[in-house]
């Protein structure tokens, strides 16, 4: 990385914040507007991918906890499965969300705190983990390739 691309580096680092905000917004507005866990996860992952492109994988991984990306995906999916199938324990069919249809929901701003939100969060984690994981794999494979060449 030559000093000449200080600007892109600064921009990239700076963009991380708005990208994160967009992701959060997409997620929070998911149930009431366009966007959902998948979109949010992808946007967030694109933000991380931008760091890879600009900083290279070593530096990107130094400042971001992305080595655990596959773990995030696994935890997300496990969480999703847990939320989906937990109702079985109380004798309800799978994917019965709480609170039940028609009942009042606690609100956090505009976000209605139903278990389906947690489910969406699980999807967010999975998608984020998966995309970042693939970007990471490709980045390392690229390094390997250049070393061989």
């Amino acid at each position: 990385m030559s000093p000449s691309n200080v600007l892109p580096r600064a921009v990239a680092r700076f963009l991380l914040l708005p990208i994160g905000m967009i992701a959060v917004a997409l997620f929070v507005k998911g149930l009431s507007s366009t966007g959902d866990g998948f979109a949010a996860g992808t946007v967030a992952a694109l933000g991380v991918a931008l760091q890879y492109v600009v900083f290279g994988h070593r530096e990107a991984e130094r400042c971001l906890p992305v080595r655990r990306a596959p773990l995030a995906a696994v935890v997300g999916l496990a969480l999703g499965i847990a939320i989906g199938f937990a109702p079985l324990l109380s004798g309800d069919p799978a994917f019965t969300h709480l609170p039940p249809a028609g009942e009042k929901v606690a609100k956090l701003g505009t976000l209605e705190l139903a278990t389906s939100v947690a489910f969406d969060a699980a999807i967010f984690l999975t998608v984020f983990g998966m995309v970042v994981g693939i970007v990471r794999e490709l980045a390392w494979a690229a390094e390997q390739e250049t070393e061989e060449a």
Binding site: L31, A73, L77, S116, D120, M130
Partner: peptide, 28 residues
């Protein structure tokens, strides 16, 4: 009834949550 204004999101996270979970599994 699924506490969602966006019907598509309601389908993805509630009505057809099983599909969504399987789709996430494909990604993993």
């Amino acid at each position: 009834a699924a506490h969602a204004q966006d019907v598509v999101t309601a389908i993805l996270s509630d009505f057809r949550g099983l599909d969504t979970l399987a789709e996430a599994t494909v990604l993993l």
